[in-house]
Design a protein around this nucleic acid. Structure first.
Lengths: 131, 131, 131, 131
DNA sequence: GTGGTCTAGACCACG
DNA sequence: GTGGTCTAGACCACC
């Protein structure tokens, strides 16, 4: 379900956080359903349980999951998860706009790029450009 | 000319790279004009010369500047610089689109956000999303 | 009669302790009336009997109930229960005051907050501060 | 500067977080001043550096400090720190009020307790009542 | 069995 | 030197 990329500069635990966040948003992981246990996911990915623990801690901090000692970790309210994600995305676009403006990009150019990129179905390698 | 933000999580050398890139794109630093020497910029910013060295190395690797041993570092062909920057920006937008699609954002929603964010003149603090 | 909140970080047995304490103070559970048996309450809440056992043990330790081997558990003297609860509350306020003082809060500020918070009827979500 | 209480049920890293937060609020640690390094504080308290690391991470997350790789950790903007702390305290008082209401405490009673507890100068043992 | 905390020691990126 | 990440293995609280 999760594939780690060791060439990626981002820490392992962050990759896990992002991937699980995506799975929750896409609806693969349903509300209040149980996540794999810290230990089992660790052995599945052949990494240390502490790394998973850290990822889960981060997800709980951001309100995506809730953990119950002795029982497990569970997916939080999915509607609020979607709201969180949407707000994140809008912020990211705002950052991009700011950068594009500084580089002298015009608004209509940006719109035409947006159209163009929207068509590209899975053309890119995946996971972000390391410029 | 350059202001460092130590609260920024990005490494210092990366901040310098970005800032110099911006200055070249905006036309403040003209083609073939000489960049400040490693040592002088280091003392100006009161940081370690190694850090400047690393920034210049990075800029040369990406094709934004060229260095001549014993003479200094110079701004590369600005048209190609602009092309590089433009391509970077487009890639970033592509990454964003991919992420937005995964989150179920519709294309017209994205366009309306783009319009909205384009209006916001300097509303955001600057430097990246602390999600 | 009791609703468990698995999202709450506090252990289940502690939630039960608190809830039963509240019910005794409010007078829903009268003095010397019998509490539900460990097994029946466990099946009602669909949790492990051990957890109920632990909650009852805790309540007896604190003097809120008394157990008779082979007969069941019973509500203790409600006046002393109220006294216990009152003393607990006063201690908690004392802790708060100490913390507020350290933070430089003035006494009249605290009083005005108290007035303000007293008006808020059920505004807060319940269960503790996620600071 | 920091005293750990191993009898305290709270984790070590949380004690450190609270203590440092207090020191920043009281003004002992001034804005932008450097905190002891992860390693030095660890040896000072004779605990593992990872524990300090976690405390610092938590403080950064909450906006009390900022960390720069290779340079150190520093006290964030103290005015916003005070605002954060004030909001936390008000929330805690709100929780207390809710509990007091449930226990049938009257508002004037609460005010008289507040006055009373405010007078008690350091009477209590320190650190919170384990009921 | 579960999550949570702590220790010990390693390696990396940064300055 | 600094902070940050990861591993390995231990112990605790809870269910």
């Amino acid at each position: 379900m999760i594939l780690l990329d060791y060439k990626d500069r981002r820490p392992i635990y962050e990759q896990i956080v992002e991937k699980l966040k995506d799975l929750m948003i896409c609806g693969v992981l349903e509300q209040d359903s149980q996540l794999p246990s810290v230990r089992s996911l660790a052995t599945d990915l052949s990494i240390n349980p502490n790394t998973i623990q850290r990822a889960y801690m981060e997800l709980e901090r951001r309100g995506f999951i809730y953990s119950v000692k002795g029982r497990g970790s569970f997916v939080a309210d999915t509607t609020s998860i979607l709201a969180l994600k949407t707000s994140e995305l809008k912020n990211k676009l705002g950052d991009w706009v700011e950068e594009a403006k500084r580089a002298g990009i015009k608004e209509d150019k940006a719109h035409s790029w947006l159209v163009e990129e929207w068509i590209n179905e899975g053309t890119r390698s995946g996971g972000g450009v390391r410029e």
